[in-house]
């Protein structure tokens, strides 16, 4: 769990090296949380925030929300609902793909089908 805070701090500081608006204060304002809270999260003095806040952090930092949620030990409500609707099917799919290399997993990514128009 402590990885989450460290990761956020590193991502923020990387941005801040080129853009002063990535101070704790300004990022916190954009995400809608108190600067002191963000600071504590970064120092792992507070557990990772809510899913909504993590998603806003991801947006503000240009990071993938699922990756940040995973670092926080969470799985998005959306993904949980997907699995809950068809647990057997998705349980099997995930197990089958767990050790597959990324390019093999990407082959099963579903594309939006274009038809005749």
């Amino acid at each position: 769990m402590s990885n989450f805070g460290t990761y956020i701090r590193q991502a923020r500081e990387t941005h801040r090296a080129k853009d002063a608006s990535f101070s704790v204060r300004q990022l916190a304002a954009r995400v809608g949380i108190e600067p002191s809270y963000l600071s504590k999260i970064e120092r792992s003095e507070q557990p990772p925030p809510s899913q909504q806040t993590i998603e806003r952090l991801a947006e503000a930092l240009g990071e993938d929300a699922d990756v940040l949620l995973a670092l926080a030990g969470k799985v998005s409500d959306e993904l949980q609902e997907i699995i809950r609707r068809r647990p057997k099917l998705f349980g099997e799919l995930i197990r089958q793909l767990k050790d597959a290399p990324d390019h093999a997993v990407l082959r099963v990514v579903r594309e939006v089908r274009d038809g005749e128009w």
Partner: peptide, 12 residues
């Protein structure tokens, strides 16, 4: 549930 011409065109 969708009209057949939607399926012909595909998409979202």
């Amino acid at each position: 549930g969708v009209p057949p011409h939607w399926l012909e065109r595909g998409g979202v």
